[in-house]
C-alpha cells in the first residue's frame, strides 16, 4: 500500500512486479558496462583490433566453449584450483584449529604466518619452480601454499576468538576438555574457517592462472589468455578473461551458498 490513490488493480500489479524488479537490479550494472563497452567499441576511438564488441566476444565465448578447446582449458584450470584447494584445506584446517587451541603454539608461528601472508604469492613462484620444476604439481603446490596460509590463519583465529561464555557454559555442564574442543571450539571456529576456505579458493584460482601464464602448460585458462594476447587473437583473449571471471564468481557464490546452509546460526 504505497499511495492512497493506487487502485487495487495497480497495487496487485506492483506487488507482482516489485520482487522481479528487485531481483533484476544486479543486472543493471552489467548492462551499463556492456553498453559502455559496445559504445567504445563501435565509436572508433579504439582500434577495433584491440576491442571487439561485447556480442562478438560473447559469440566467441560460446563457440569456443562448445566446439573449441576452451572447455579443455577450463577443466584444466578448475582441476588445478580444486586440487590446490583440497590440499590446502586438508592440511590447513586441522593445523589451524590445533594452533588456535594453544595460545603459545600460535604466538610462536604467528610471525611466520603473517610474513608469508603479506608476501605476494606470485613472488614465490620462481622459488617453487626451483623446488618442484615446471610440472603440473608445481602449479598446484604454489596455489595450495597461498590458500593454505589463508586457511590456517582463519581457522586458528576462529578457535582463538571463540566466545569465552560458551566454553564456560560447556565446562559447567560437565564437558571434559575434548568435548569442549569438539562441541564448542570447533563449532565456534566454523564461520571464520569458512571465510578462510572461501578466500582460499579465490587465491588458489588467482595463483593457478598466474602460474599457468608464467610457468607455461599445455592446457589452462591462464595459458590461453597469454597465448591469445601474443598472437593478437583479442576476441579469444576477452572471451577467456570473461570465462575466468565467471569461474571465480561461481566458486565464490558456491561457497557462500554452502556456508549459509551449514553455518545457519551465523549473525543470529
Amino acid at each position: 500500500m504505497n499511495t492512497a490513490l493506487s487502485t487495487p488493480k495497480s497495487q496487485a500489479k506492483s506487488r507482482f512486479w516489485r520482487p522481479w524488479m528487485n531481483r533484476l537490479l544486479p543486472l543493471v550494472g552489467v548492462l551499463v558496462l556492456f553498453g559502455l563497452w559496445w559504445f567504445v567499441a563501435v565509436s572508433g576511438w579504439v582500434n577495433p583490433v584491440l576491442l571487439p564488441t561485447p556480442w562478438t566476444t560473447l559469440g566467441t565465448l560460446l563457440t569456443a566453449l562448445t566446439t573449441g578447446t576452451m572447455m579443455t582449458d577450463l577443466v584444466a584450470s578448475v582441476g588445478r584450483t580444486f586440487s590446490a584447494f583440497l590440499l590446502a584445506a586438508i592440511v590447513g584446517v586441522p593445523l589451524g584449529v590445533l594452533l588456535g587451541s594453544s595460545e603459545k603454539l600460535y604466538r610462536s608461528v604467528e610471525f611466520l604466518i603473517d610474513f608469508f601472508r603479506s608476501t605476494p604469492a606470485s613472488a614465490l613462484i620462481p622459488m617453487f619452480i626451483l623446488f618442484f620444476g615446471i610440472s603440473n604439481l608445481s602449479k598446484i603446490i604454489i596455489a595450495a601454499f597461498s590458500a593454505f596460509l589463508l586457511i590456517v590463519f582463519n581457522s586458528a583465529y576462529g578457535v582463538m576468538h571463540a566466545k569465552q561464555s560458551r566454553i564456560l557454559a560447556a565446562k559447567v555442564m560437565g564437558a571434559n576438555p575434548w568435548q569442549i574442543f569438539k562441541d564448542v571450539l570447533l563449532m565456534e571456529s566454523l564461520p571464520q574457517t569458512f571465510i578462510g576456505l572461501r578466500s582460499g579458493i579465490s587465491i588458489a584460482l588467482v595463483i593457478v592462472i598466474v602460474a599457468e601464464m608464467f610457468i607455461g602448460t599445455q592446457e589452462g585458462l591462464g595459458k590461453r589468455i597469454i597465448d591469445a594476447q601474443q598472437i593478437l587473437n583479442v576476441k579469444d583473449m576477452y572471451a577467456s578473461i570473461l570465462i575466468t571471471g565467471l569461474l571465480g564468481y561461481t566458486l565464490n557464490v558456491m561457497f557462500l551458498l554452502v556456508e549459509k546452509r551449514l553455518i545457519h546460526w551465523s549473525g543470529k
Binding site: K163, S165, R166, H264
Partner: peptide
C-alpha cells in the same frame, strides 16, 4: 548465564542444547 545468546550453543537445536549436560555424561 546472564546472556542466554552467548551461553546457548546455537549450532544445536533447543532440544540438543537442553540434553547436552546429559550427553556429556
Amino acid at each position: 548465564f546472564q546472556n542466554y545468546r552467548e551461553a546457548m550453543l546455537p549450532w544445536l537445536s533447543a532440544y540438543d542444547n537442553i540434553a547436552y549436560p546429559l550427553r556429556v555424561r
